[in-house]
Design a protein around this nucleic acid. Structure first.
Lengths: 133, 133
DNA sequence: CGGTATCCTTTACGATACTG
DNA sequence: CAGTATCGTAAAGGATACCG
């Protein structure tokens, strides 16, 4: 695995380093920070959802992308899929304990962005104004 | 702007809602959670970098993508670009106060992912094992 | 050194149709 | 209902060449 060796003498602590190309952390991080991954995790932080409920909750997501996103998150151990053997089919998606931990951090980040939107817009205006000719 | 109206009577608090399609928070969030955006923010959390230093620090990034990522982050007010009028050119990139706040949250998330990699791999193994035929 | 411009390939994504 | 399969388009990204 691609790792960073801590400089402390004798420690020789092995730790993944996302800044290095090929580090597997990158793939996991991309699953959770992907366009739809973020929104799915945040939604599931509130409660569990059925597939089509989730599709309505996460505005703009297609069936294909939702299915694909859920599969990646399930495989990584963040989402639990509970398919009840009934007709019509019913599948509930929820966060695993590990999923709850990531989702919390994703939510912190997202909430910060939402709350700082105005400041971002001001920065953009200043940036654009300085470059208009 | 695309907003959520709080249910509390009389509050009428307007707040961006990233779960709605078209919410401008999504674009900002995508800048900071983009493949290279994450890595640039984390790098700059440590110290300021020159362009080509940053290119070496962030393994695998191309000149094109680094320039593009830095421009988006600068326009959103997260990164400060300091171009010194010297020959040869010298440009230093650093985090703004606002950039420091996002980068901190991105770093929390990333560190968590790095530290949980083993558990993710175990989940993947279990997932794959359950489906091998 | 710190980028842009161009070209090209690959991936992401959406729409639609279909299935257990 | 909860998906999968297929197809077509659009966007992301890499390689290379070039410029102030």
């Amino acid at each position: 695995m691609d790792v960073r060796v801590s400089p402390e003498a004798g420690m020789r602590e092995l730790w993944p380093d996302v800044s290095r190309a090929g580090c597997p952390s990158r793939v996991v991080l991309e699953h959770v920070t992907s366009r739809w991954g973020v929104l799915v995790l945040i939604a599931l932080l509130g409660r569990s959802y059925r597939f089509s409920e989730l599709r309505r909750k996460v505005g703009g997501v297609s069936e294909k992308m939702l299915a694909q996103t859920l599969q990646a998150l399930e495989r990584d151990g963040f989402v639990h899929r509970d398919a009840k053997p009934v007709i019509p089919p019913r599948v509930d998606y929820s966060l695993t304990p590990m999923g709850h931990e990531v989702a919390g951090r994703v939510w912190e980040l997202t909430r910060w962005v939402e709350s700082s939107l105005d400041e971002v817009f001001e920065a953009r205006d200043a940036y654009d104004a300085a470059r208009e000719s």
